[in-house]
């Protein structure tokens, strides 16, 4: 009786350990298969010609993705310019100003924004944002500006929920100390609360950037997908993600490898951003 109990415990432990390692296995598979398909082209064509090449004509042997790298960063910073102030304001309002009932309503409502599928954001961007830009500022409307606006909204839930957690974790005594010195609420927030939560807030911005740079379907619908570096916010552009999604369905041979090379570059950028964000969050926890 006792023996079977111990055997069962042992088997359960083995199974759970296997499950726990499955995540690492999946991560390994994802990395190795994307690298395996993408790296040979770097060796064949040359790292420099891919990363700093201007011309993307994969069926003619040109695999330059420099304009897409730049475009990906442009839309990411554009999204941050729109999403970061708005998201931080919402987080501050939720943690410092809203009453309990209001918070119970607002917080889930803001998180629901994350549930709207990216194709729906893209579609509404095409129907409403693109024509507004075309009619008021000129150009085709499919542009860096339209993409930044859509992505700015899409990264709001990430920025709000992580900044909110960071601000909430600032000890109440900090605020009380500040009030006791005669500071007003806003003075307390911007001189005490926000600086104490800054690493968490920064992490929320970086995770928001990670979300924006990896976003695909909404981007290909509103970006215009032109193969050049945008020189104004009204110019169309093509991001790294867009390049993969637009051509993967029909690409073969070297062309397909070129798309995996695009994926390798994207993967590296994402890993760096995630590493920085997690490092930022850890610093807050230690403090």
């Amino acid at each position: 009786m006792i023996k079977t109990k111990i055997d069962k415990e042992f088997i359960v432990k083995i199974i759970l350990t296997t499950f726990a390692f499955s995540s690492l296995l999946f991560l390994f598979l994802i990395f190795s298969f994307i690298l395996f398909e993408g790296l040979p082209l770097f060796l064949k064509v040359g790292l420099k010609k891919i990363i700093f090449g201007f011309k993307w004509a994969p069926t003619k042997g040109s695999f330059g993705i420099f304009p897409m790298i730049i475009s990906s960063f442009f839309v990411t910073f554009g999204a941050l310019i729109i999403g970061a102030p708005l998201g931080l304001s919402c987080a501050i309002y939720l943690s410092e100003y809203s009453g309990k009932k209001m918070k119970m309503f607002l917080k889930p409502a803001l998180e629901l924004l994350a549930g709207i599928p990216s194709v729906v954001y893209g579609f509404l961007g095409v129907i409403y944002i693109v024509p507004i830009i075309r009619n008021n500022f000129g150009g085709a409307g499919f542009s860096l500006l339209a993409t930044s606006i859509i992505l700015g909204v899409m990264i709001l839930p990430t920025i709000i929920s992580i900044s909110f957690d960071a601000i909430m974790s600032v000890p109440k005594t900090y605020r009380e100390g500040s009030f006791a010195m005669g500071a007003t609420k806003w003075q307390t927030i911007y001189k005490v609360v926000v600086p104490s939560a800054r690493s968490g807030i920064l992490a929320s911005f970086i995770l928001g950037m990670g979300r924006a740079i990896g976003e695909t379907m909404a981007v290909i619908m509103v970006a215009g997908n032109a193969l050049k570096i945008p020189t104004s916010i009204l110019d169309p552009l093509r991001t790294l993600t867009g390049n993969i999604a637009l051509e993967l369905a029909y690409a073969t041979g070297d062309h397909r490898m070129g798309l995996f090379s695009t994926g390798v570059v994207l993967l590296v950028i994402i890993m760096i951003l995630n590493y920085i964000a997690n490092f930022g969050i850890k610093r807050r926890v230690i403090k």
């Binding site: 994802i30 990896g214 993969i244 994207l266």
Partner: peptide, 21 residues
């Protein structure tokens, strides 16, 4: 670290991986 990394990978890269694998 593995779980966090998986969480950060954008869906297009899951698509790319699922497609090739």
């Amino acid at each position: 670290f593995g779980v966090e990394s998986l969480a950060g990978i954008p869906s297009i890269l899951y698509g790319l991986f699922g497609f090739i694998f």
